[in-house]
Design a protein around this nucleic acid. Structure first.
Lengths: 188, 188
DNA sequence: GCTTACCTACCTAGTGATAGTTTGTCAACA
DNA sequence: TGTTGACAAACTATCACTAGGTAGGTAAGC
């Protein structure tokens, strides 16, 4: 089982940095120290690897989300912890795996798309919970639909990560996310 | 000259839909009806093509921006016109060329990065102007720095386009962008 | 006015490299 | 003994790119 995990770890980083079309089995083989052909024993096709990775990554994310929402933090601190996940990704020069695959969606095997869709839905759903919680705690002053604000947060974070990684401007990422949070506290 | 333009048009669409690593000279050759080798006469390397395309696209964008800001519209309508650019891209199943290249930044020839960086800077700069204008017209109630809000708008639009294109949820894009605008009118 | 030279735009036919994948073998282990 | 996990070797397809050549246009030189 250990090799399978090493392959997944290597592939995950490669996708987050270079995209699904930007790496090959040869890259993984070199990193984990087995031959290309042996990789196909664990993941017969690249699509199989992609599908497994969407599951793994969604699981990782869900674990992180549950850990945050299960904490005793106030909602604003929980949101900050969520944003910190993106910030750490930026530090590692990685896109969110979901965001990266989204950009390549038209070139992916369509069987990967439902999992990708679920990934974004899960993020939005969790953010919605946090926003509702924060409204109850009178930390956030949302105008209308919390789910709409959640999608806006998700979009803005994905976009900020996308741009900051390409321009190398991490300060811009920090300023953008800070503004995103303060905007949640504006009165109407 | 006509052929060069047809190549650029074809390549632009291919990149916006499939990414720089997701298309080949063979794809363009088929579309425009000449041989692969002949493409290299016009654009010796793929990087040359990419560089030309960043220039073309930046020029297109700048034309659109100048057309909007030169109009007699109020600032909120100008912003709506800017958002409509993204919405039209979504309808064509296209990412913004800048956003797409940004996701692949680590795999691109580094000579393409400065142009890409300028592209985002130009967008942010234009949005800043519009926000300042809208504040003078008392249409927008920005808290602090207009440039920060501009970057937030840009990030959110790129992210919303990225996600909506992958999930196929165009309604979510519309709701997100609508909220983005109403948030600019909130009091503090 | 005709040659000579050069140019653009395209072609056929390849190059070596790499893509994802398949086949068949084999040792270690359960 | 059958399964697992690795291997070498090869496959077909495609990648970006190059070599060398052709057809037609332009323009200078005499």
């Amino acid at each position: 089982m250990e090799m399978k995990e090493r392959i997944l770890t290597s592939a995950q980083r490669l996708i987050q940095q270079r995209g699904f079309n930007g790496f090959s089995y040869a890259d993984i083989a070199e990193e984990v120290g087995i031959r290309k052909a042996s990789l196909h024993h664990h993941f017969p096709t690249k699509t199989d690897l992609g599908l497994a990775l969407i599951e793994v990554y969604s699981g990782q994310l869900n674990g992180a989300l549950l850990s945050i929402s299960g904490s005793s933090l106030f909602a604003d601190a929980k949101l900050a912890a969520y944003i910190a996940l993106y910030r750490r990704s930026l530090e590692a020069d990685c896109m969110c795996l979901g965001g990266m695959l989204a950009s390549e969606a038209l070139t992916l095997d369509p069987v990967m798309l439902p999992g990708l869709k679920r990934f974004f839905a899960r993020n939005a759903e969790w953010l919605t919970e946090i926003l509702v919680e924060g409204r109850l705690q009178q930390l956030f002053t949302l105008t209308g639909n919390a789910a709409d604000h959640a999608r806006l947060l998700l979009s803005a974070l994905q976009g900020a990560l996308l741009i900051a990684r390409a321009t190398g401007d991490r300060e811009a990422f920090d300023q953008t996310t800070a503004l995103l949070v303060t905007d949640l506290m504006k009165k109407n």
